[in-house]
Simulated assay, not measured.
Amino acid sequence: MAVKKDTGFDPARTLGLLWRVGNKPSRTGLSVDAIVDAAIAIADAEGLDAVSMRRVADRLGVGAMSLYTHVPGREELADLMIDAALGSLYSGIEEPSAATDGWRAGLRFVAERNWILYQRHSWLLDAQGPRAVLGPNTNDKYEAELRVLENSGLSDVEMDSVLTLVLTHVAGAARALARFDRVREESGMSDAQWWEATAPVLEKVMDRDRYPVSSRVGTAASMSYDAATDPVHEYEFGVERILDGVAALIERR
């Protein structure tokens, strides 16, 4: 499913769809919500590329043309899917700040929830673009996550930058994990099996005298992970180091 906006894309029209301005179900019960739910179910099962207006229509048992009365096209549908998926992140705007004590625990909570979200809806990693989808759930998410940094001593711009840093790290680690899962499935080999087959050959061709540091570090890491790397470890390690950096920034205030 392409998410690149074509020349016919109308941001104002999409914004109206996201906030359900003037949207009403048809006589058959077909609605924007029903279309979006069907599209998300397809994406969860088969990935974003599997989502098309025809596939969604087939899942709903209606003609493809009937969808266009509610959703103009795939680009708008992608935005609606993103915003809908973000609606499951928190029980309410207050949850991240109310469920934790202090900004550090709050940011860790935010990171964990987003990490889990990407495991549930891995297609979000392909769907999200550089421009925010300004729907109600997206706005709720931004507000909820910023509140954990309120009264931390950071400026407003720093609050936005810190949150962006955490979320970018989480998305990158989640993307790495998704690639690892895909490679395991396509190759039919676990990481341990791949390393078992690779290590003896690498030992023969790689000169340890030329690469003394990388040989030592690589061996220690692979033995620890039982693989070449571990995206889950990188996610956890990265979050804590980011939080250490934020703490240092706050202390300088």
Score class of each variant (00 low, 15 high):
Ala2Trp: 06
Val3Lys: 12
Asp6Pro: 12
Thr7Phe: 15
Asp10Thr: 03
Asp10Trp: 01
Asp10Lys: 08
Ala12Ile: 01
Thr14Ala: 11
Leu17Phe: 10
Leu18Ser: 13
Arg20Ile: 09
Gly22Cys: 08
Pro25Asn: 13
Ser26Met: 10
Gly29Leu: 10
Ser31Arg: 06
Val32Cys: 10
Ile35Arg: 02
Ile35Met: 03
Ile35Phe: 03
Ile40His: 01
Ile40Phe: 05
Ile40Pro: 00
Ala41Asp: 13
Ala43Trp: 15
Asp44Asn: 08
Ala45Asp: 13
Ala45Lys: 15
Ala50Met: 05
Val51Ala: 10
Met53Pro: 00
Arg55Gln: 12
Val56Gln: 01
Ala57His: 08
Asp58Phe: 00
Gly61Lys: 03
Val62Phe: 15
Met65Lys: 09
Tyr68Thr: 15
Thr69Leu: 01
His70Glu: 12
Pro72Asp: 11
Arg74Met: 10
Arg74Ile: 11
Leu77Phe: 02
Leu80Ile: 07
Met81Lys: 00
Met81Phe: 06
Asp83Cys: 09
Leu86His: 05
Leu86Phe: 11
Tyr90Asp: 06
Gly92Cys: 10
Gly92Arg: 11
Glu94Asn: 01
Ser97Gln: 12
Ser97Val: 14
Ala98His: 15
Ala99Asp: 06
Thr100Leu: 07
Thr100Ser: 11
Asp101Cys: 04
Ala105Gly: 08
Gly106Asp: 04
Phe109Tyr: 15
Val110Tyr: 15
Val110Pro: 02
Ala111Tyr: 01
Glu112Asn: 05
Leu117His: 06
Arg120Lys: 13
Trp123Ile: 15
Trp123Ser: 07
Asp126Pro: 05
Arg131Asn: 04
Arg131Pro: 01
Val133Trp: 00
Gly135Glu: 07
Gly135Met: 09
Gly135Asp: 02
Asn137Gln: 09
Asp140Phe: 05
Lys141Val: 14
Lys141Met: 14
Tyr142Gly: 05
Ala144His: 11
Ala144Trp: 10
Glu145Gly: 13
Leu146Gln: 14
Val148Lys: 08
Val148His: 12
Glu150Ala: 10
Glu150Lys: 14
Asn151Ser: 14
Ser152His: 05
Leu154Ile: 00
Asp156Glu: 13
Asp156Ser: 13
Val157Ala: 14
Val157Asn: 01
Glu158Ser: 15
Met159Tyr: 01
Asp160Cys: 08
Leu163Ile: 14
Leu163Tyr: 11
Thr164Trp: 00
Leu167Asn: 10
Gly172Trp: 09
Gly172Asn: 11
Arg179Thr: 15
Phe180Gln: 02
Phe180Asn: 03
Asp181Met: 09
Glu185Pro: 03
Glu185Ile: 02
Glu186Ala: 09
Ser187Gln: 10
Gly188Pro: 01
Met189Cys: 06
Ala192Thr: 08
Gln193Asn: 04
Trp195Pro: 00
Glu196Ser: 08
Val201Trp: 06
Leu202Ala: 12
Val205Tyr: 05
Val205Pro: 02
Ser214Asp: 02
Ser215Ile: 08
Arg216Glu: 13
Gly218Cys: 13
Ala220Ser: 03
Ala221Gly: 00
Ser222Thr: 12
Ser224Arg: 09
Tyr225Arg: 13
Asp226Gln: 13
Thr229Gly: 09
Pro231Cys: 08
Glu234His: 05
Glu236Asn: 05
Glu236Trp: 08
Glu236Arg: 13
Gly238Gln: 06
Gly238Arg: 08
Glu240Asn: 04
Leu243Asp: 02
Asp244Phe: 03
Ala247Cys: 05
Leu249Ile: 11
Ile250Arg: 07
Arg253Leu: 11
